[in-house]
Amino acid sequence: MAKKEITFGKIFHDGFFKQNPVFVQFLGMCPTLAVTGSVETALGMGAGVIFVLVFSNLIVSLIRNWVPSEVRIPVYIVIIAALVTILETVMQYYVLDLYLALGTFLSLIVVNCLILGRAEAFASQNNPVKSAADGLAMGLGFTGGIVLLGFFRELFGKGSITIWGDLGIQIIPEAFQISIFAQASGAFLVFGILVAYINKIKFRRLDQSEVA
């Protein structure tokens, strides 16, 4: 192998930070914006994405040497679509409320560029274990990103964080809530500010490493 062996540590570091799908790669932005009105839906979407990503990476990696490259994209899409359908069915039975809250976005995991992107960029070139690990890492990174976004939106928009209905904390009194954050347009604003802030940190580090 001429290529440098990729380690699990690097896989997770990439997933969380260096190639964070939400803040760095800007992959899967539709759900990023749509389901981050609350921490709860963000967590649900994150879990769904992790499930699909891990399994799609695993399956894609298992059949990587067998699928002709001309049809790999359609094959990946079919695999992802099947996994998403299974996910939908399972969620409909076990967490109906969450299923209804996520609505069409659950189906749209199929066209989440993150998943197809990881299948194409990683799973089709690595062994199943590492591919699954990459799926988990990327999924967790994605989940972390959208939960962070959801946290700010729910915190400022509704003044409280509510998870699974009964775990509610009122942090900001009603008079000081900014409802725009929880509304659709607020998603752009919060996401924009967060990205700008993360860029700021990123550039500072970059500057420091250049100086060093």
């Binding site: 752009f188 924009g192 990205v195 700008a196 860029n199």
Partner: peptide, 22 residues
């Protein structure tokens, strides 16, 4: 500003447009 270039400023623009459309 450097850290606002690209996606961040696009998102802020989208925010303003979304406000208008709302």
């Amino acid at each position: 500003k450097r850290n606002w270039q690209g996606i961040p400023i696009a998102l802020i623009t989208a925010f303003i447009m979304a406000m208008i459309f709302s």
